[in-house]
Design a protein around this nucleic acid. Sequence first.
DNA 1: CACTTGACCTGTCCGC
DNA 2: TGCGGACAGGTCAAGT
Length: 289
Amino acid sequence: MPELPEVETVRRGLEKLITGRVIKKVAHDTEKSFPNATADVTAFLIGASVRKVRRRAKVLLIDLSSDYTLVIHLKMTGQLVFVGDERFGAGHPNDSLINELPDKSTRVTFTFKDGAQLFFNDQRKFGWVRLMPTVEVPNINFMQTVGPEPLEADFTWQQFAERFTRRAKTSIKAALLDQTVIAGVGNIYADECLWGAKIHPKRLVGSITKAEFKRLYTELRTVMNLAIEKGGSSNHTYINAEGKKGSYMDFARVFRREGLMCPRHPDVEIIKFKAAGRGTHICPVCQVE
DNA sequence: CACTTGACCTGTCCGC
DNA sequence: TGCGGACAGGTCAAGT
């Protein structure tokens, strides 16, 4: 899925596009797409307006005037795409794409009172949408166990390093991907910040020095802030709420660049292998085991 | 507890 | 052109 920068990009788009709009209708395909969409629950959806769009880790939270919240996880291939009046006029940023919605991967369709629509599309069907009272959101298991937001202004490198102590015997990459350690890191930004900090992904957490944690913290924040600025990273599935792709991949140093040269070593090829069960990219000179 | 692995799905790409 | 297998930006529930 979308990692923190992609989910944040979607959040910002939705905030601008759907805040204040009144939901008139909701439709979904299978039970799995919207597990608790029973009539007594959707009663808190129909007629409610969007108050606020929040994000925690990789989860989107759409607060409604009914004091209920739509909780949405995009997982690997989820998208939330808004289609408003632009669909009927020229010059929409991605007319050809937008005009195809809904399509065969549309899972949930929200229709607003003014005719605009929000489509939850998800090719692999791992994602989900739930509706629950806003006050209960902090009690769900994920919210209770998820780690701190890495981009918060008051989050320090010492706090960052401290979060890892519990995972001393696993690899640094596995620990970075563990949402209970730090929120929002996924496969792209794990590889990117490990390269930036010159740390091999298979190094055990217990072997990482304070200086290395400090570098990793700085690199993670730098890379995620840059990615947000660029609208996230796009493969063939990710687009934001306006149907646009992000451009971070134009700035990636190692991710999905196997066979290309390391930015620090013009004569060294980036290699790919498996670490923490995921495709992993490194510069074999910058990052040694 | 900490840690690893397989499962959940569909689509695409690559080698035979 | 077809087919099998690996792989894809993420969690979970199991197993050791």
